[in-house]
């Protein structure tokens, strides 16, 4: 049988369908989980920039429950930001930000207190920066710098300074060795904040008091 001309064709066909069906079956099993992971990555980013909602080691289902219960969906009034409310009072906003990073789009969330000035945190749920360099933006050492920084009213909202520079209230240190990622991220953040704040002022008819 092995000498027949059709044997290689049939053999190839049988092998391909055999392995393909296993892979397709396997992907059906994991498919739902992969999709859930994508949603969860976003929800986790939102929770981690809002005060008091996120701690390490929380289970997946608990994270999802918190997101559904505590975070209100964005609407026109909040300028497309998610909001955290406590007994009707807005505590903080979580504004999704995105833009082109060094290699691929960076997507993240930045948290701002109800005073529209103080940053509560920043998190990223999609990025493809260089591992060990640009990808350090997802590490706590970089992200925790943003907490309690104040959006500056003049010039750039937030500044990324060289790692050796002194920091003011609106400055954070850039990632060492990742100039490009830092420059682009600075731009993404500032564009998003500027746009959001002006929209917010328009829809709510009140500028930021300075």
């Amino acid at each position: 049988m092995r000498d027949k001309w059709w044997f290689p064709v049939v053999y190839m066909f049988v092998m391909t369908s055999f392995f393909s069906s296993i892979v397709i079956g396997f992907s059906q099993v994991t498919g739902a989980r992969v999709e859930a992971n994508e949603h969860l990555a976003f929800e986790k980013a939102v929770l981690s920039v809002l005060p008091g909602l996120f701690n390490e080691g929380t289970s997946r289902s608990e994270l999802h429950r918190r997101f559904v219960e505590r975070v209100s969906s964005p609407d026109k009034k909040t300028g497309d930001a998610y909001t955290l409310k406590d007994s009707g009072q807005t505590i903080a906003y979580a504004l999704p930000i995105s833009g082109q990073g060094f290699w691929a789009p960076i997507k993240g969330v930045i948290g701002i207190k109800a005073d529209l000035r103080t940053i509560t945190g920043i998190a990223f749920y999609e990025q493809n920066e260089t591992p060990g360099l640009g990808a350090q933006i997802t590490k706590n050492t970089f992200r925790s710098q943003f907490q309690d920084k104040v959006i500056s009213s003049a010039g750039k909202s937030l500044n990324m300074k060289r790692p050796s520079d002194m920091l003011g209230t609106s400055d954070v240190h850039a990632v060492t060795g990742a100039t490009q990622t830092s420059a682009r991220l600075e731009r993404i953040i500032n564009d998003a904040l500027k746009k959001w704040l002006s929209e917010f002022a328009q829809t709510n008819g009140e500028g930021r008091t300075q």
């Binding site: 082109q100 100039t179 490009q180 420059a183 682009r184 731009r187």
Partner: peptide, 8 residues
């Protein structure tokens, strides 16, 4: 060369 293309 990395300075050739600045962040836009």
């Amino acid at each position: 060369f990395s300075g050739v293309l600045q962040a836009r």
